[in-house]
Nucleic acid binder design. Structure first.
Lengths: 160, 160
DNA sequence: TTATTTGTTCGGTCAATACCGAACAAACCG
DNA sequence: CGGTTTGTTCGGTATTGACCGAACAAATAA
């Protein structure tokens, strides 16, 4: 059965999670709601109603989320309204965002090494490690994503 | 040669990076400085001087960083002062933090499924995907870290 | 046309928090 | 013993930004 209490809790938790990774809390709540709502596509007024937020906040949150490709706009023939739903690849997107952070660290390591050009190898060791570790991870991440894509298809998640 | 300009830029960049992942900007600057300074261990007054921050801010930043095991306290025999340096495994630590986020998402997916207990499989699909993808990544991450540890040893980074 | 629905943008308010300076606390040195 | 160095804690300030309401815009329905 539908445990409304738990559903509300879920939405709040997801809100806090995404707030923790840099989004606005409301944007996180939108994601949470879009993950459990029925139907899976919702209009802005739907979201205003469901989340008890102002329509301006919802509007901004959806703009951010669509820009990040975590949520996509969606329409139905014969229906002039605009719906929003989680994007099929939202989790891959989130993952790629992490990957980007790693690449950033790799680049920062390189920048640091450039700044210490000519210094002793001993002095450069901290930065080399920083660069090499993050370079390694930046290389491995895409492989993980590929691997997951295969499993995903195996599991029959193709349509999602 | 030591390009001071670039070094300052590096410290600022690292500061911004770590601010972006949830630390205080000053804490990020401390990390940046500890990655390039000579010697690699520094006292609190050293950091106050180098970063132009107040000693209270430095004190707090170091407390946070040592709690996260990104920086460690360090002493020298016959020297009563306390030094601070980046910890050997600071990058693995950062990585494990990411891993923890992934596990959190997995757990959130499970919580969502519990909240929708009894609903149609169709409705549960978004949450199942969320759970399965993050479960997969949470399993693969430790393997990546192991793989890196081997390479790290190969590369002669053992002592760092 | 006018009224209603939907949506964006802008200004202001409020909350969170990073940072500093000052007060306080130890430990060591003269 | 003072006095100096080192370090933490606390209160206040200032910045940031999330959020809301209101104004505005545009499209549709009556």
């Amino acid at each position: 059965m539908a445990d409304i209490e738990k559903q509300v809790g879920f939405v709040e938790q997801v809100g806090l999670y995404f707030e923790g990774v840099g989004l606005a809390r409301i944007a996180g709540r939108v994601i949470g709601w879009l993950l459990i709502c029925d139907p899976p596509h919702q209009t802005q007024p739907d979201l205003v109603e469901a989340l008890g937020a102002s329509k301006s906040s919802i509007s901004v949150a959806l703009k951010d989320l669509t820009t990040l490709y975590l949520v996509e706009r969606f329409t139905l023939p014969g229906d002039r309204r605009t719906y929003y739903r989680t994007s099929k690849d939202m989790w891959s997107r989130s993952f790629r965002a992490r990957m980007h952070q790693i690449s950033e660290l790799k680049a920062l390591g390189e920048a640091g090494l450039a700044a210490l050009e000519g210094e002793s190898p001993e002095r450069l060791k901290r930065l080399s490690l920083m660069r090499d570790m993050n370079a390694f991870m930046a290389e491995e991440f895409p492989k993980l994503l590929d691997k997951w894509d295969a499993i995903k298809r195996e599991k029959g998640y193709d349509d999602l």
